[in-house]
């Protein structure tokens, strides 16, 4: 079987982990601020992929050949699409249930998720079937010693890293980031500081959704096939990554996602079915051994 722990696998694992991390951050931020597991979050990833797909053809016809600018614009559109739909879901579906029993919003989240999947399948210009995703920039193979990787893998890792550094700055250093942390710790106290907590919550959905949207573009490029249900599987894996890291904890989500990405890649190299199943094995082990996750602070009622 040779060694499965080679450089090639590590890079691939980091790439898969990068995509999970972008999705997991939204799960964990939304959970942190409103204690909701937003089951529709994986669908914002799907929406980002379709927004990227559609906008690529428009930008490509306008800016033919300028791959860098096209890719950048497509990234912005996919982030906006994921972010705005997330904000809308919050405004229409979750906000009215904010102070109702948690089970109501949880079931609503499942409803929002199914609605988005069926609605996109029903839309004539999208439809239920697979579409092949165009090469947004030319694909090249880069050889690094014994490993050969595609430039897409590098792009996935780098774009995710840049976005996550930006998020860290936002949350740690800006006034808005402080407000987000304040709202997630104590809503009444935040209101007494004059913070409009609903605005901050809406903004958190916007950021979380936009990261999922960006992940949708990256995944679309890398595995060039998109469909309305494409968010379910990565959404679930990213959720497990967030639980592994300690849901509500931002660095935890990133750590959990990279661990998941690497574990899945190594396991797949050994046996592809094992690769599919290892996420769930990790979930069960975490829930048994350390229910609060790697970096989670306390055991709370998670759902």
């Amino acid at each position: 079987m040779g060694s499965i722990f080679n450089a090639q696998q590590i890079v691939n694992g980091l790439q898969v982990g990068s995509i999970y991390a972008l999705i997991a951050l939204g799960y964990t931020m939304v959970y942190g601020i409103v204690r909701l597991i937003n089951f529709a979050h994986g669908d914002f990833f799907m929406i980002g992929a379709y927004a990227a797909y559609g906008s690529f053809f428009i930008f490509n016809s306008m800016l033919a050949g300028k791959h860098g600018s096209i890719a950048f614009l497509v990234l912005i559109v996919s982030m906006l699409a994921g972010g705005l739909i997330a904000m809308l879901a919050n405004q229409l579906a979750y906000k009215p249930l904010r102070y109702k029993p948690k089970l109501s919003s949880l079931i609503t989240a499942i409803g929002v998720s199914m609605f988005l999947e069926y609605f996109f399948s029903a839309l004539p210009m999208i439809g239920p079937s697979y579409r092949s995703f165009p090469d947004i920039i030319p694909k090249v193979q880069i050889s690094l010693g014994s490993a050969t990787i595609s430039n897409y893998v590098v792009i996935d890792i780098v774009v995710a890293a840049v976005l996550m550094i930006g998020l860290t700055f936002l949350v740690r250093k800006t006034a808005l980031g402080k407000a987000m942390r304040a709202v997630s710790q104590d809503k009444d106290a935040a209101r007494l500081m004059g913070i409009d907590i609903e605005k901050v919550i809406g903004f958190t959905f916007l950021i979380g959704g936009s990261f999922a949207g960006a992940a949708g573009l990256l995944a679309g490029m890398t595995y060039p096939r998109i469909f309305p249900y494409m968010g379910i599987q990565p959404g679930l894996k990213a959720f497990i990554a967030a639980v592994l890291g300690g849901i509500g904890n931002i660095p935890g989500a990133v750590l959990g996602a990279y661990i998941m990405g690497l574990a899945e890649t190594f396991a797949s190299a050994y046996n592809s079915l094992l690769g599919e199943g290892i996420a769930f094995a990790i979930l069960i082990i975490v829930l048994l051994v350390r229910p609060r996750g790697l970096l989670g602070e306390k055991v709370a009622d998670k759902i």
Binding site: K178, A182, Q185, A189, L192
Partner: peptide, 30 residues
């Protein structure tokens, strides 16, 4: 509540409600 703060109502609530994982300085800045 958040609209009353700029009008001039400052409320120090029961139990203080300090933000535990923000620094003292960040608490004041907020």
């Amino acid at each position: 509540a958040h609209k009353l703060v700029p009008l001039g109502i400052s409320h120090v609530p029961e139990g203080r409600k300090i933000f535990p994982t923000l620094t003292v300085r960040e608490n004041l800045e907020l």
